[in-house]
Design a protein around this nucleic acid. Structure first.
Lengths: 229, 229
DNA sequence: GCGCCGATGATTGTTGACAATCCTGTGAGC
DNA sequence: GCTCACAGGATTGTCAACAATCATCGGCGC
């Protein structure tokens, strides 16, 4: 997580990525892209082959991912991909709501003119994507928007937490994006967030972001009644 | 972190604490009580004696604490107690502000009559402690108040995060409590938080909590000018 | 005297083997 | 047929030794 951004400072000393780190990142990607399903057992010996790493490093990777909340290890029983219940997903998103609210507020305080321009551009592209029915593209833009806001805010502590939380519910989030009518709901919310940040209005930015994520929580709660997976 | 509370569910299966877990908890306590100073190097061999554990388990403990943000490990260079700058301390407290705000709001939604009574009791004791100049006692009550609120809220995700963040700045928090005039400032804030939760007013509870922690941030920023240590 | 370079000790990274534990399937007893 | 106990295999937990790397210090040339 933090190590993803380690390169930006002290670029001189590159310190080889270390096998354990590589194994960790590879495994994280695999879980996040759904190659291992929630609840699935992660056998160390198998991971050794898959990741081309020694058991020692596999173990270290599993321990790290456990700390991130992606896997769960039980003594003498091995590691499983963590299965987050709908109730947990709601809790996680609640925390994300307030922390991303903080990030949005800070972005509104710090935004520079060229960043504001980029925000507006994303907003325009989003509207076009929705009007054209290109939901996949809209989803990509959504990711890009949130990333840009975090970049503007420069709040490393909040960043780390949001990243961790987001990882824990990729699966749910994927299901969410399939909900019909979601873009029509979220587009105006995104536009309000963009406007507030552009106008240097922290309170409005926080409020808009919270409202946006609150509606995600509502959608999650709605999904619960159909398929709790 | 989570394992501290693991006993509450599935109490039947006790699963021995495991050497690694014990080592981790012991070392965390040692760091938190200041036996190792920020920036101090943690040599594996020394920790083996101190914790009466093998190097294998010491390593696992260090890795865990690194994930918690208490120590920092550099490849081939060993582990140090993490030194959090004042800027980071402010960031961390900002996140704590919004997450504890969420917790307070939820506590206001869920509080039961007997819990409300306990809150009020703590409020009374706090006022008495301040009036009597018993600041150490006031500080203990402060901890108890925040813990009770979290217990009422029952928000495990938020709990975990707050606990992690709090651990990262025990040192700063300790310095804070020494600031003269702090109790006079924080007492009315605490009383407002208690009143809002007791009255089932989530918005007011969140606002009061945020205001309270915002003033902690101000105090932190003020400290910066004296001893950045 | 000053700075560079290589040896030396200290410390961490990694491995493979062994021990402890759990899960599975088989068979005896009821 | 069903339950229980008990191997046997699979998987994880732990260790001690070895390899790689880093920090320190002394010597050499300038």
């Amino acid at each position: 997580m933090a190590s993803d951004h380690d390169t930006d400072r002290r670029a001189a000393r590159v310190t080889a990525p270390s096998t354990a780190t590589q194994a960790r990142d590879t495994l994280r990607d695999a879980i996040l892209r759904g190659e291992y399903l929630p609840g699935e057992r992660l056998v160390e010996a198998q991971l050794c082959e898959r990741l081309e790493a020694s058991r020692f490093n596999v173990r270290a990777a599993l321990q790290d991912l456990a700390a991130e909340g992606l896997v769960e290890v039980q003594r003498n029983r091995g590691a499983h991909v963590r299965k987050v219940s709908m109730a947990e997903a709601v809790e996680i998103t609640e925390v994300r709501m307030v922390v991303e609210g903080l990030i949005a507020a800070r972005a509104a305080e710090r935004v520079e003119p060229d960043q504001a321009t980029e925000l507006d551009e994303i907003g325009v592209l989003m509207r076009r994507a929705v009007e054209a029915g290109e939901y996949r593209r809209y989803s990509d833009l959504n990711v890009r928007l949130h990333a840009l806001i975090r970049q503007i805010a420069e709040h490393r502590t909040a960043d780390r937490i949001v990243e961790t939380l987001r990882g824990q519910l990729v699966r749910h989030q994927y299901m969410l994006s399939l909900l019909p009518g979601r873009p029509q709901t979220s587009l105006p919310q995104h536009e309000r967030i963009i406007a507030a940040i552009r106008d240097h209005d922290p309170k409005a930015a926080e409020g808009a972001m919270r409202e946006h994520i609150a509606s995600v929580i509502e959608a999650l709660r709605g999904m619960d009644h159909f398929g709790p997976a």
